[in-house]
């Protein structure tokens, strides 16, 4: 499992706060986008997969997302959190692509989890496998909106940023996450 320190840092928003307004930064927009592209392209790609896109489509849209970020910064726009910005644009691009292809059903990412824990301790490995199975079951009971909110929260976005990405209010995001975590807690700790 991921260490708590790293998780706390992500949830406390330290990572996202490092992305100050790009227009105020000393480096050029190209260098900023290059850095963010290397750091977050797999995260955006994974999120696009959760929207039900094929891997090739998800990869193309991920690159398109960062290209749009660069064009936006070239116009002098001030983007407070570029990481949240790319998730929002990727979300919109993904939904647009899905609607264009008429695919309404997202890919069930919960069924893609077949990874085997490689921990050394067989007992811990068995416990982790059992916990992962419980979470997977809990995720199957969540709505698509709740899963997206949970996914984005785990990616470090804050409530208002998740609200921007998904297109709902901040309070709705809070309610989605509260219900999703309640189900997860119930499954994991039962």
């Amino acid at each position: 499992m991921l260490g708590r320190t790293a998780l706390e840092r992500r949830f406390d928003g330290e990572e996202e706060r490092s992305g100050l307004t790009l227009a105020e930064a000393a480096v050029s927009p190209g260098e900023q986008v290059d850095q963010l592209y290397r750091d977050a392209r797999n995260d955006v790609y994974g999120y696009l997969l959760t929207l039900g896109l094929a891997p090739a489509q998800a990869q193309d849209l991920a690159q398109e997302t960062f290209f749009r970020l660069y064009k936006e910064l070239r116009t002098g726009a001030a983007i407070r959190n570029p990481r949240a910005w790319v998730f929002r644009v990727a979300h919109n691009l993904g939904l647009t692509e899905r609607e264009r292809e008429g695919r309404l059903e997202p890919v069930d990412t919960t069924r893609l989890m077949a990874r085997t824990d490689t921990g050394a301790d067989p007992e811990l490995r068995a416990m982790a496998r059992e916990q992962a199975a419980g979470i997977r079951q809990a995720l199957e009971r969540l709505s698509a909106q709740q899963r997206r909110c949970l996914y984005l929260r785990a990616e470090g976005l804050r409530y208002h940023e998740i609200a921007d990405v998904v297109g709902v209010s901040v309070s709705t995001v809070g309610e989605f996450l509260r219900r999703a975590l309640a189900k997860l807690k119930k499954v994991v700790h039962e």
Partner: peptide, 8 residues
């Protein structure tokens, strides 16, 4: 629960 999900 959130940390458990994040690890997952």
């Amino acid at each position: 629960a959130l940390w458990d999900y994040a690890a997952f």
